[in-house]
Simulated scan of single mutants.
Amino acid sequence: MQTGDDSKAPLERYLGATIRELRQRHDLTIAQVADQAGISRGMLSKIENAQTSTGLDVLHRIAQALGVSLSSLFRNFDVPQGDAQLVKKGAGMEVVRKGTKRGHTYHLLAYDQGPRKAFEPFLITLEDEAERFPTFEHPGTEFIHMLKGVIEYRHGQQTYILHPGDTLTFQADIPHGPERLIKTPIQFLSIFIYPPGTAE
């Protein structure tokens, strides 16, 4: 039986799916939960299938039978749908940047949409100890987090020895770049954070 108020349908579907998921997660049967909540098995089945609406008192008893609070049944209702961008391991787009040579790869890990870009996260791998690097300059801030290897990295007139777990953050409009590859292979995350209004 469908209720006449269509505005309740999304909530009924959400509650039904949530109750069924909790019941199955705890390996409980409809009969066990219905008996514990003091309602008929048919009623619980209709609630799970969004075929009927019910009051807060009944929902409270169902929640108790499931071992959760009443508020937890509503916790994720009407939460905005996520729009995250997932890039699986090894699937980042390989890009060519100034100084890119053999044994020096950039993988872009997210693709900013629209006419302006806010940030660019790269996974950078350096393998050739004999490689010479140009200096880089670009707007905004750069954040580096070392994952593997040891590198000497230059920013302006200063150089820094970076080991796995180290981070380096700096203004990117000052000349910077790898000075010396101490222990290869080297891998680090490099995140460019651009100031507002930076065009692609």
Rank of each mutant, 00 (worst) to 15 (best):
T169P: 06
L168T: 03
P121W: 04
G55M: 09
F133E: 05
V68E: 10
G165I: 13
R102K: 11
L66D: 05
T100K: 05
A91G: 13
T169E: 14
D83V: 14
D166R: 03
K89G: 15
Q85E: 15
D83H: 14
R132H: 09
A110C: 11
S72D: 15
T141I: 15
F77P: 01
N49S: 13
G99V: 07
R75F: 11
F77I: 07
T141S: 09
G149L: 08
E152N: 12
K89H: 13
T52Q: 06
G67D: 09
V96Q: 11
H163S: 14
L59D: 06
I144K: 00
E131Y: 04
V87H: 03
F136T: 04
T135S: 11
I151F: 01
A118P: 00
V150N: 03
Y160L: 12
V58A: 13
Q85M: 12
P139K: 05
L109V: 08
D83A: 15
F122P: 00
P115K: 08
G92V: 03
Q113C: 09
G149C: 09
D112T: 09
F119P: 00
S45P: 01
K88W: 10
K46S: 07
L56F: 10
Q64Y: 05
T141V: 15
L126H: 06
R97K: 12
A118Q: 09
H107D: 10
R97W: 01
S69E: 15
D57M: 07
G99W: 01
L73Q: 09
L162S: 05
V150I: 14
E129H: 08
L70K: 03
S53P: 02
F74S: 07
L147V: 10
E131P: 00
I124W: 02
G55D: 14
A50V: 03
K88G: 11
A50R: 01
I62S: 04
S71D: 15
Y111E: 10
R154D: 07
R97N: 06
H107A: 14
A84F: 06
V87W: 03
L147W: 05
L70S: 09
A110P: 00
T52M: 11
E137T: 15
I47Q: 01
A118W: 03
T105P: 01
N76K: 04
L66G: 02
K148I: 13
I144F: 00
P115D: 12
G82D: 12
D166W: 04
V68I: 14
T135C: 05
I124S: 04
S45R: 02
L162R: 01
G156L: 07
L59Q: 06
G114E: 05
G140K: 00
G90P: 06
T54W: 00
F119R: 03
E142D: 08
H60D: 15
E137V: 15
F133C: 05
A118H: 06
E129K: 10
T135K: 05
E142V: 04
Q64I: 11
E48P: 01
E127L: 10
F122L: 11
A65S: 15
S69P: 03
L126F: 08
E152Y: 03
Y160W: 10
R116A: 13
V95Y: 04
M93K: 13
A91F: 10
R116K: 12
F122N: 00
G92P: 01
Q51G: 15
Y153D: 06
P134F: 08
E152W: 03
A84R: 06
I47W: 00
Q85V: 12
G140Y: 01
V58P: 00
A118T: 08
I47N: 04
G114M: 04
T125W: 03
A50Q: 02
